[in-house]
Every structure is written in C-alpha cells, then in structure tokens.
Design a protein around this nucleic acid. Structure first.
Lengths: 209, 209
DNA sequence: CAAATTTTTGACCGATTGGACAAACGTTAG
DNA sequence: CTAACGTTTGTCCAATCGGTCAAAAATTTG
C-alpha cells in the first residue's frame, strides 16, 4: 500500500485542490471516459501540460477524487448510533443523506457514474470497506427489530432504499425538476422530499384510521 | 416533425434491429461519449462503414434507442388504474417496475446515464410527455388520498420514491451484489427486494403492536 | 544577489475517434 | 440474362485524445 504521504509545496497543494475541484465538476457531468484532460484543465484555469505536472495521468485525478469521496460519502451511515432511539436515529440518517444529496450533488453523480459503469475502479472498496460497514449497521438495525422497536424487515434492503430515495434527488435532479415543473420544482423540493421520506419510512403509507 | 416512416427492405429492418440491440449493450455500460461506433459495430458483427450505412451518425442510433425506451419504460405507470383498489394498484405498479429493473437492466442504465448527464437529448420528452403522465397519475393518487383509501402524502414524491427504489436494483446492481455478498446477492435478491418494498410502501415501518 | 529548484508553456507525438467515399459485391425485378 | 438497385468493404481523412519533452519563466534557497 502506497501510504507514504509525499511532501508537497504550498503551490502544489493549492493547485491540486483546484484541479480536483474542476475535475469533480467535469467528471460528475460527463463521466470518466466522457471527460477530457483539456476540459478539466480549462475549468481549473491552467494549461494541459501544467495540469499533467500535478497529476501525471487522467486516472490519477479520478482515483484521488474517488478515495476522498468514499470517506465523506459514508460518514452519515457511520454516525448511525446503536444507543439512540431507533426511529430518531433512522430519521436523522435519512435527513443527513438527503442533505448530502442537496449540498453535494456532484459527488453523488460522480459516484453514480462509477457504479453505473460497473464500478471498475472501486470494486474492492465496495466489497471491503462498504460491505463491512453496511453489515455492521444492518446488525444494529436487526437488534432494534428484535427488541420490537421497529417493524421486522430486511435491514440491507432498508439501507438500499434509503440510499436510492435520497440520492435520487441528486442523480435524477433534472428529471425531478422537469416533472415538478417551474412552480414545485424550485428550492422547496428538498423540504417536500424530506417531509415525504419521513412519512414513508417512519409512518408508512397505511391509512391512519 | 419527421414522422414520415421511410420504407425499408427486409435486410434493413433486420440489420437495424441488430445494431440497436448491440448499441443498447454498449451505450448502457459505457455511456454515450464513452461508447465508440467500432464497439457497436463489432458487437453487431459488422464493419463500421456497414453500420454507418444503416445509421448515418452515432447520435441517430442513440436517439432511436431513447425514443423506443421511453415508450416501454413508462408502460407500467400508464397501467396504473383509477378503478382498481388503490393499495392493490400501487402494489402491482411497484412489482411491475421491479420486474423491469430485473428483466431490462440495460434499458434502466441507459436511461440513468442520460439523466445523470443532464438529459441533453430527452429534455423535451421529460417536460412534455413524462410530466403530463405523472401529473395525470398524481391526480389519481390524490383522489385515493381524498377518499381516505391511502394515507395523505405527496403523490409526486411517492412516484419518485417508487422509481428510485426499483431502478436502484438495476442501476446500482453492482453495489447491491457487492454489499449482499455471494450468499444473499444471488438470484434471490429480487424476491427479497420485492418483499421489502411491499412492506415499506404498503405496510410501513411502524412497529406492529 | 545568484544558484538551485519548482512551475509553466508551446510544440509535438502516436493512437483513437466519427465519419466520407468510391469501388466491389449481392440481390432482385423485368 | 442483365440492368438497376441495395449492401458491404478497404481506404482514407481531419479532429481529438492522452501524454511527452525540452526549454522558458517563476520561485525558493543560500
């Protein structure tokens, strides 16, 4: 494992950040193969050879981006706490995930792009780090179910459905806005989504009577 | 509108189908820009110039594919019937959507790819045909809610969440299988998903007591 | 300051891309 | 059979791609 942190100058740190920010924008909207080094370089305000001075290959940029992504992306699930009240914990998790979809849509799309194409570059992370974390949290949820705190169901698919519904508002944002139209598709759509998801996951759809 | 159906020979019809089938495979796994005409030609078992004899531009193939996709893709929602029992209708809709994710994952990924990249080629369809259909069905669902047949909630976001959760099993299939592992990630995962989604949408997550 | 080092750039390269084209090859109708 | 038409292919092209390289410019170090 190459974990030896190379010492970098001030300029190197700044320029690398600039490039990563630009690459996030470009990769998340065009995918890896659909993006060109020239596009990223222009978005970062530098020439292509200059960019290649900081990242020697296009793949290196993408790899660095994906490594950082996974950490921040899984943070909400890591916070899911065994100790708190189950329904409150789940409600908080859903809210945090939806906030991430709202505040970091590019990260969500970058991730979605990678998975859609078969996750060629992050498969080990999915089978390792991600699976471990999900299994762990699924066990926590299972405990809640055994204790009668929440209805018995499949914890893994519960997590999948939370991922799917929240990330949908980032990945399919264009479609959401198109369907809701100019009135309801404005800034309020995330509040509406939050209300709906809370009801769906916490209260259910059964008639109240 | 160019709706004048060009008369085609038998060979033209067959070869065009062959190309579209091959293009579905290639586009859905590599995206539009990530796919090359050569790849599609090889997958279709013909030379590149020969392919270009049937479709003059790469975009023409993609466009034809997207037009066909939208029809079959929206069919389940079109079937959602005002007359039947609300919960039964919703259950059937969810089941049909999940079956499409299972049986037509390439179509789902092709669509997801297009939306992810901002839907540059199908935006008019989203704002027109799709929005009209969703609005219509949302009105049906709203009627059920007013009649007290199902809990009051936002019909549009309900439809979004059904799309998100079902298509997740096609678009994020790699991740689902990686997390479930070799045991639970096998062929049974769609039955498990079906059971879970039925409980989520129809019964809710509240404790039974 | 001046030397050493880091950063930036223009020019260039081979490979791949989408697509054009004319010639060769098949097929079909009279 | 043969002429007309439909199909297939090899060759070619300009544009774009990821990436190299040496030299110029800027910065840091002593």
């Amino acid at each position: 494992m190459d974990t030896a942190a190379p010492r970098r100058t001030r300029i190197q740190q700044e320029k690398r950040e600039l490039i990563l920010e630009a690459a996030l924008e470009v990769f998340s909207t065009n995918g890896f193969r659909g993006s060109t080094i020239d596009q990223i370089a222009e978005a970062a305000g530098m020439s292509k050879p200059n960019l290649l001075y900081y990242f020697r290959r296009k793949e290196d940029i993408h790899e660095t981006l994906m490594q950082r992504l996974m950490d921040t992306w899984l943070a909400p699930l890591r916070e899911l706490d065994d100790i708190g009240d189950p329904l409150t914990e789940l409600r908080s998790y859903i809210r945090r995930k939806l906030e991430m979809a709202r505040d970091y849509p590019r990260e969500s799309r970058l991730f979605a792009n990678e998975i859609l194409q078969g996750a060629p570059r992050i498969m080990p992370m999915l089978e390792g780090e991600l699976k471990t974390l999900v299994d762990e949290k699924a066990a926590v949820i299972k405990g809640w179910m055994r204790a009668g705190k929440i209805a018995k169901t499949d914890p893994w698919h519960l997590i999948f459905s939370i991922w799917a519904t929240t990330q949908h508002y980032a990945d399919f944002d264009v479609q959401v806005r198109a369907v809701l139209g100019p009135n309801r598709g404005g800034d309020g759509r995330f509040e509406d989504a939050a209300r709906f998801l809370e009801q769906l996951f916490i209260d259910g759809l059964k008639p109240k009577g």
